[in-house]
Amino acid sequence: MPTRTVAGTTVEVNDEGFFVDPAQWTEAMAPELAAEEGIAALTDDHWTVIRFMRSEYAEKGTGPTVRVLGKTSGVPVKELYQLFPKGPAKIAARVAGIPKPRGCL
């Protein structure tokens, strides 16, 4: 399993760059991970989504898809794409240090 350094800490990631162990993630790592996805500054709305991703993962063992995010995170789909233009569920999962959500919807 490849490793990388985020915010000065070595973490395990998979081939696509998603965290293997979400417990290795800290909030201090989010800005650096976000910057790699072209997100220069994390707003409160970004954090709402990031925390929602983590709580869903903790509860269900898998991150939410875009449709689930749109229905349950309190952030509408249009806005989700403004926050994470390259795919809200996928990019937010990367920034939130959880595995990539699986699901066709």
Binding site: V66, Y81, K86, G87, P88, A89, K90, I91, L105
Partner: peptide, 11 residues
Amino acid sequence: LIMASGARAEG
């Protein structure tokens, strides 16, 4: 429709 939404999910 599923292919469309799936593609958008991938950015």
